[in-house]
Design a protein around this nucleic acid. Structure first.
Lengths: 241, 241
DNA sequence: CTAGACCAAATAATCGATTTTTTATCCAAA
DNA sequence: TTTGGATAAAAAATCGATTATTTGGTCTAG
């Protein structure tokens, strides 16, 4: 009846970009690994040109490191960098949240409640991990959406992807997780109550706790052989080539 | 006598990326313009593959807009966006400056003095426009360099490029310019005196004045024909296709 | 032995041609 | 005049092959 929705023109390049982005964020590649382009070509069944275009984009975005004449590498995980990322998340998401609370309208309130509700449902269904991740991202996005700055939102998104590289690798901590889940609801309450100060404080705490979970990505068991090497902390294991 | 410095491996892709980036920031393309890829190929004498890779990177960086199946466009200039960019510059550079002042060491003080001095020399030589731009960028980079956050620096750099698209297009205002030049020296003094508060205030003012200059990019003369079209403000002229 | 020079294999980068999709043009019907 | 549709031209995206550079191994001179 209506207009035929044209199937969105997904180019090979944009498809492989999205796919690789997800796989990178979800830790499907080893940190520090050098990407063998021809292997990727096989693995994903795409041509060289679209693949290289996607890799270039990912490098500009910060999910890959590009070195002239020697291809692309997955960035190492380093505690320093995680500290930086978490710190910036606190600063930027805090700023965005304050602004969003000051500027968000009634429509925002509705969407926020909806997003929080969907997320809560997913909290209780531990089998749908991927779905939860989607909804979680979407909740945080909705929370800060009306901050009024496209650039701020862009930076926050980028930091989220970076942060998740660590968080997704860390072992789950059910008790912290329960607290974090509860905080989502509290954030909504404070936002609806237009409690700028309180919301920001809670957001700080929320990110701090997430950060502590993400730190777990460095807590790898060392096998006896590794233990003997003096001075090799667990963090080094992940950041070494 | 020492080791032979290997000439840095500049690929065609990275060369055309740098070149296009500069040309975009310097306003050598019309805002809103659609880039004809084959024309660029001619103009810069590079092949399709490296060119497309560069365009993809620039799009991820925010200096181009990529639309599936219909190539690349130069982003329009819009007053809203300039407001956003300037606002974020104030927030992020302010933050970075505070941290830099708290963390910068003696070596930083020296480099800062040096950078400011070089810039001052260039202030007085109005013929070397390009050189001044380089030194100006470098001064601001040096100022915030020891802030301790690689991500913050990255975002600031990106915002600078965006901001300069507008500023470079705006007509020069010698009187404001004199004030801005003087502020560079004052920023150094406050930084060396470790006056966090004062430095931040001055930085806010510095960016505010630069913003007001950049606003001039919208102050185009309208010719009589255009004037008759009701409701067409000067800003629209730049943001229209 | 070890540092350096040389070569061969592997990999990255680039080119030229082909395929796919969009955009522009023209014509007929309402 | 418009509107819709077919078609030609233009442009974007992709492919397959070629070229350039790096990497890893081997040999030789010191």
């Amino acid at each position: 009846m209506g207009i035929f929705e044209r199937k969105e023109g997904v180019t090979a390049s944009s498809w492989i970009y999205d796919t690789l982005r997800q796989d990178l964020v979800n830790g499907r590649f080893t940190a520090g690994e050098k990407l063998a382009i021809s292997a990727l070509k096989e693995r994903y069944g795409v041509g060289l040109s679209p693949l290289r275009e996607a890799l270039n984009r990912l490098a500009a975005y910060g999910l890959l490191i590009q070195e002239n004449q020697r291809g692309f590498r997955v960035p190492r995980l380093a505690r320093d960098e995680l500290d930086d990322i978490a710190d910036m998340r606190r600063e930027l998401e805090g700023m965005a949240l304050e602004r969003a609370i000051q500027r968000g309208d009634a429509e925002w309130e509705s969407e926020l409640l909806a997003a929080a509700h969907r997320l809560k449902r997913a909290d209780e269904a531990p089998e749908m991990e991927e779905e939860w991740e989607r909804l979680h991202m979407r909740f945080h996005r909705t929370l800060v959406a009306p901050c009024g700055s496209a650039w701020l939102l862009r930076f926050i998104e980028q930091l989220h992807d970076q942060f998740d590289r660590y968080r997704r690798l860390a072992p789950g901590e059910p008790e912290v997780r329960r607290v974090l889940d509860a905080q989502h609801g509290e954030l909504v309450e404070l936002a609806l109550a237009r409690d700028v100060k309180g919301a920001r404080t809670l957001m700080d705490d929320h990110i701090q706790r997430s950060y502590e979970v993400a730190l777990g990505s460095f807590a790898r068991e060392l096998d006896p052989a590794d233990r003997q090497q003096a001075g090799v902390g667990s963090a080094d294991l992940l950041s070494r080539r």
